[in-house]
């Protein structure tokens, strides 16, 4: 990893982003407080379909805080407060008419550490469709589970082990299981909070490929510590520093000709 970062972006077969199409999600003036302490200041960003948006920045910069705002996971934390507007298809996600439960079904999330439920592989994936009532019959549920595992690139490895506990899989498989679990409820946006930080390089490569494939159907937001990863998987990059969104733009531009000198310092490895 000591060699200079190669900023050659992999050509992909994915459709080009239609920049003029309305954003899937958009955040305007988002502030977050934990008790008295302000963790995020005035963040504006748009999330588009068929595009991977990477959030980068040094640790403690607020990128994880921000991604947790997008599906209101901050509600779980007792004294967290969110200000500003975040919309999903033009509707404010804090709108009392919009249910947090259905919001999270539309905006799924994959966490830093794989967190499969202590149930079988099958039950892990079936859990979401079950609680949301997406399958009318056992057969339909089987189909959803199979399709989700296939899309997560895990089917081949677990087809024979559906009844084994999810925790018996390897770390990388567990993380793909969590991705399958997230896509089983057919979300529109998938949030990934450093999904590869607990994995070895081979498993990481596997997940990165997967992310690139998932881009065809979803809007993806990924928080990452590794600039190489952001460069490899994303089309759009936002750089956070000390709770502020310093700069955002097409990934290529952020990594090759950043406008802000803090961004430049970070991507060239002078701090971070």
């Amino acid at each position: 990893m000591n060699q200079p970062i190669a900023f050659t972006l992999k050509p992909t077969s994915a459709p080009a982003v239609a920049v003029d199409s309305p954003p899937k999600m958009s955040a305007r003036g988002v502030d977050v407080f934990y008790g008295e302490k302000q963790a995020l200041f005035d963040v504006d960003i748009d999330i588009h379909r068929n595009r991977v948006t990477a959030l980068i920045g040094p640790s403690g910069c607020g990128k994880s805080t921000f991604i947790r705002c997008l599906n209101r996971m901050n509600d779980v934390i007792a004294d967290a407060r969110v200000r500003g507007s975040i919309t999903l298809d033009g509707q404010d996600i804090h709108d009392p008419g919009l249910d947090v439960v259905s919001l999270r079904a539309r905006v799924g999330m994959v966490f830093q550490k794989p967190n499969p439920f202590p149930k079988s592989v099958y039950e892990n994936v079936a859990y979401g469709p079950r609680i949301h009532g997406l399958a009318a019959s056992r057969g339909e549920l089987d189909d959803i589970v199979r399709a989700s595992l296939e899309r997560a690139g895990l089917w081949g490895e677990v087809a024979e082990r559906l009844n084994e506990p999810g925790t018996s899989l390897s770390g990388g498989q567990q993380q793909r299981l969590c991705i399958a679990r997230a896509i089983a409820v057919d979300p529109e946006v998938i949030l990934m909070d450093e999904p590869c930080s607990a994995l070895d390089p081979i498993a990481t490569a596997r997940i990165e490929e997967l992310i690139d494939e998932l881009r065809l159907n979803f809007a993806i937001v990924i928080v990452t510590h590794s600039m190489q990863q952001a460069a490899r998987v994303s089309q759009h990059t936002a750089f956070f520093h000390l709770g502020k969104l310093v700069e955002q733009g097409p990934t290529e531009q952020i990594f090759t000709s950043p406008r802000d000198e803090r961004t430049q310092g970070y991507v060239t490895g002078r701090f971070g």
Partner: peptide, 11 residues
């Protein structure tokens, strides 16, 4: 139907 289901779940 989805709205109903949601109402039931909240109940």
């Amino acid at each position: 139907a989805a709205a109903n289901r949601l109402r039931r779940r909240h109940g």
